[in-house]
């Protein structure tokens, strides 16, 4: 069960895994995540499902090495197995025909963005995708998002690829040049915070997907709580997607440092 069928290095620290999980592959929708455990004694960590193949019975996970558990997962090879994969969890993305959608992702956040880009395009939207990374080799999934995007804008902090600048620079240019009906942002919390600030200024509805600390992922522990619109919400069951303009990102950033 949960055997790794394929592995690809997107960069030194970012790995794509194709994992056997037939039931989840069948029932998942864009926006859903899974809880993964690697090894007896392993942590339960949430990972967004980047893609799925219901026929083959596989899901795609993109994992960045940041801590103990993600390092263990990234060290797995085809033929190895994850100890536990449970899901799909969270609320699926609300996909509708809204007009023009800017999907902007930073770093490994592009992975969870991929199914949303696909679904937004399939719903008949004009999709402009903004991919951002620190440097060229950290830009991931460009080829996969391209067929589902009317335009792909790549931003790098150091200008080594695409345009030099932050994700917000790329998004702002699009908002200035054409009418944008919705922005979807997924990436590091600090990136989403600044995207939210920008789009609030322009009055563009913005959806973000939050990657908080979780234990069970089913609503039981409350580790993932965030303040949205002044109310405490649980990312695992109420989210992971929220109105970015209502999210208290400063509190979320603080809580992400709970175990640092």
């Amino acid at each position: 069960m949960f055997t790794i069928l394929e592995k690809e290095h997107f960069s030194e620290n970012v790995v794509k895994l194709i994992v056997e999980a037939p039931q989840i592959a069948r029932s998942r929708r864009p926006g859903h995540f899974v809880i993964v455990r690697c090894g007896e004694g392993g942590e339960r960590i949430p990972l967004t499902i980047a893609d799925a193949d219901p026929v083959r019975g596989t899901i795609m996970l993109v994992v960045q090495q940041v801590g103990v558990s993600t390092c263990k997962i990234c060290a797995l090879e085809p033929g190895d197995s994850l100890t536990d994969v449970v899901g799909p969890l969270g609320q699926a993305t609300h996909i509708g025909h809204v007009g023009t959608v800017v999907c902007c992702g930073g770093g490994v956040g592009v992975a969870p963005l991929l199914p949303i880009i696909k679904a937004m395009k399939q719903a008949g939207n004009r999709v402009v995708t903004v991919l951002a990374a620190r440097t060229r080799e950290l830009v991931i999934l460009e080829d996969q998002v391209a067929p589902w995007s009317d335009e792909v804008i790549v931003m790098t902090d150091d200008g080594s690829y695409g345009r030099k600048g932050l994700v917000t620079d790329g998004v702002e240019d699009v908002i200035r040049r054409e009418k944008v009906d919705q922005v979807v942002t997924i990436g590091p919390a600090v990136m989403m915070k600044f995207v939210a600030k920008l789009t609030e200024r322009y009055g563009v509805p913005t959806m973000c997907s939050l990657n908080t600390i979780m234990v069970d992922g089913t609503g039981m522990c409350g580790a993932c709580r965030v303040t949205v619109g002044g109310r405490t919400r649980f990312v695992c069951v109420d989210g992971p997607e929220f109105d970015a303009h209502q999210v208290d990102f400063d509190e979320m950033l603080m809580r992400l440092r709970s175990y640092n």
Partner: peptide, 25 residues
């Protein structure tokens, strides 16, 4: 499922958690 919180200021500070989270960990 969902642990109840009291809705008082500061309840989302680091180091404040539900018994479910604490005991599960």
């Amino acid at each position: 499922g969902l642990p109840r919180f009291m809705g008082v200021p500061g309840e989302n500070l680091i180091g404040v958690m539900s018994s479910n989270e604490y005991l599960t960990r």
